[in-house]
Design a binder for these strands. Structure first.
Length: 577
RNA sequence: GCCCCGAUAGCUCAGCUGGAUAGAGCAGUCGCCUUCUAAGCGACGGGUCACAGGUUCGAAUCCUGUUCGGGGCGCCA
């Protein structure tokens, strides 16, 4: 709808410029939906922006444009010049009405576009190491990342969802030690540390307790899931693992169990990754050495203090960074650079990294290092999201992975379900903090929940079809109703809202901001629910056959948009609630 | 000390990349509703867009500075 008008407007603009002897490029006018409804359906400020270039008064330019545009081939009902030089357009009603049939016909395809066809995008998200259950922060990232993928798919991109994880290194050693300690404790061969020690390992840590050694590491993982894994090992092996190295079966079993748990959680939210990329493979396949060699060839590597450094100051960053410790072990940075080098080598056109605010510091080093290696760093995008805080009883719940005082996604899902979880997590802009109200989440009485409000709008739309069937009225096909019957202000308002959908998706996809979809769906439901409710002003099922068919056609179009919109967020569109 | 985010109604947050009179949900007050589905509908009240400058026809939006809040600044990941 808007595109058609934009095309006409651009043409008229081009003619106007040519007439004035201006042969420079014709700018694309900004065409927006005014806040004030009485300013029309669309407005443009193009006359004002061209005032200087044409050395004419904005209002004169506007007038010339309006003359030239005419009714834009029947599209326009009126064009008014207002204020300092805005042009306000009002579209002919049948232009809106006819759109309903198009929407109904396009069905699942409505809103999709082809702008991204031929573009391979990799989206990396979650990427939690297998040391414990996913937390709410991971949950936000999972939902955000997946919604971005869905938006990209809806705009034609070829998307790879990727999860990068590390199952080696110090973290995992500590994990193995933690499990082994619990194992020994359960066999009566070790003592658990005191609460005081766990609360303050620096000062209160004991080597022995109650005549037994304390095996638990002072920086160990304290969650109950560790004890559960240990208990399983006691059941299976009894005392056979007492002398086993913590990094062998203890670590491996823990990793397997935790990964299974993570995958189960992701599955419950409806997220499936295409690739689980193991950092270890970078070591095994010599990718770290390859990256180092490439960097060294560019003189970006130097040795100092027994360690190997990245000369990041040479590309303008504030300090150099260690990439290989004096112990010979790489830091996190090196595999990360090597990983991104691989991403480019795998042929992605765009690389989207979804990360929490705590990882932001790393990003400039990775980007500039890959640029130094000859890749186009601007193809790597960072989508950063702020933390999730959970409030309960008016107080913030303290969260710590190590102490396992965090709220897991599974716990939330048990109480509120995947749909509500997704809606809450994606509703806010990524770089705003997300305040998850646990009390509201736990409240079984979801009277004001926007998730249900939107789903309900869809279900009612479907209910209408059932009701019609009971009355012996058949639902019209996409082209089998006369949309010009729909002349009520509220009906036209709904159509106008539905018309925004395709461009909204394109914009949300381009900016990687799925929260726009959530807000939009609330708007649509906020128009549709009241319309449906007000059975006195306008019955949908009435004695007027043509009108009934038209209104059922409207319900079809609404249903299409709600369903497609919910799908973009990974939320179900129930036909009944 | 430096870097990144945020600051908009009592609360939680949008604000289409610089437009016209500032938006929603919740909470509050007042009405309506035995309904084409039940968590529904309408109205009202509520604002110095943190503060101070600047850029221009025009700023919640862009720039600079300040204040407050969150995160980060390791041979941790």
């Amino acid at each position: 709808m808007r595109e058609q008008l934009l095309e006409r407007l651009t043409t008229a603009l081009g003619e106007l410029l040519q007439e004035a002897g201006d042969t420079d490029a014709v700018p694309t006018p900004v065409l927006e939906i005014p806040r004030q409804a009485d300013h029309g359906d669309f407005a443009t400020n193009v006359a004002m922006t061209l005032a200087k270039r044409l050395r004419r008064k904005p209002r004169d330019i506007a007038e010339a444009l309006v003359d030239r545009l005419g009714d834009a081939g029947g599209l326009l009902k009126s064009s008014d010049i207002a204020g300092p030089g805005f042009i306000n357009f009002r579209l002919a009603e049948n232009a809106w009405q006819n759109l309903l049939c198009d929407i109904a016909e396009a069905a699942d395809g409505y809103g999709r576009s082809e702008g991204g066809v031929g573009s391979k995008v990799q989206v990396e998200f979650v990427s939690a190491n297998p040391t414990g259950p996913l937390s709410t922060g991971h949950g936000r990232q999972a939902v955000l990342g997946d919604a971005i993928c869905r938006l990209l798919e809806a705009t034609g991109h070829e998307v790879t969802r990727e999860y990068y994880f590390n199952n080696g290194g110090r973290q995992m050693r500590v994990l193995g030690q933690s499990v082994k300690a619990r194992y020994l404790e359960q066999l009566g061969r070790a003592s658990a540390p005191s609460d005081a020690a766990l609360a303050d390992p620096e000062n209160a840590w004991e080597e022995t307790r109650d005549g037994l050694p304390v095996a638990f590491p002072s920086d160990g993982y304290q969650g109950d899931y560790i004890a559960d894994i240990a208990a399983a090992l006691v059941d299976e092996f009894a005392e056979a693992l007492v002398d086993e190295d913590p990094s062998d079966r203890f670590r491996e079993r823990a990793q397997a169990a935790i990964f299974e748990d993570i995958r189960g959680t992701l599955d419950r939210i409806g997220i499936a990754f295409d690739v689980y990329y193991n950092e270890q493979s970078l070591y095994d396949e010599g990718k770290l050495e390859a990256a180092i060699e490439d960097l060294r060839a560019k003189d970006l590597i130097f040795d100092a203090d027994g360690a190997v450094w990245l000369r990041s100051t040479s590309f303008g960053l504030d300090r150099d960074r260690v990439v290989i410790k004096s112990s010979g072990e790489p830091t996190y940075l090196l595999p990360d650079i090597a990983y991104h080098r691989e991403k480019f080598r795998r042929g992605f056109d765009t690389i989207v990294d979804v990360q929490g605010a705590d990882h932001i510091e790393q990003f400039p080093f990775v980007r500039t290092a890959t640029e130094a290696l000859g890749f186009d760093g601007s193809k790597i995008e960072l989508v950063m999201h702020q933390f999730v805080t959970v409030t309960s009883g008016g107080e913030q719940v303290k969260q710590s992975t190590r102490k396992a005082t965090f709220i897991t996604i599974d716990e939330l899902l048990d109480q509120i379900g995947a749909d509500v979880f997704r809606f809450f997590m994606v509703e806010r802009k990524a770089d705003s903090h997300l305040d998850f109200d646990l009390d509201l989440a736990r409240d079984k009485n979801w009277r004001k929940n926007p998730t249900y409000y939107v789903q309900y709008a869809h279900a009612r739309s479907c209910g209408l079809a059932r009701k019609a069937a009971e009355a012996g009225v058949a639902m019209p096909g996409p082209r089998d109703f006369d949309p010009s019957q729909l002349v009520l202000e509220e009906e036209i308002a709904i159509v106008k809202k539905l018309a925004e959908f395709p461009e909204l998706i394109a914009r949300a996809a381009a900016s990687r901001e799925p929260h726009h979809i959530a807000y939009y769906l609330r708007d649509v439901a906020g128009l549709w629910n009241p319309y449906l409710q007000d059975g006195k002003a306008h019955r949908i099922l009435s004695d007027d056959e043509a009108l009934t068919q038209a209104r059922l056609g409207l319900s079809l179009a609404v249903r299409v948009v709600l369903k497609n919109g919910l799908a973009l967020l990974g939320i179900s569109a129930p036909e009944q609630m």
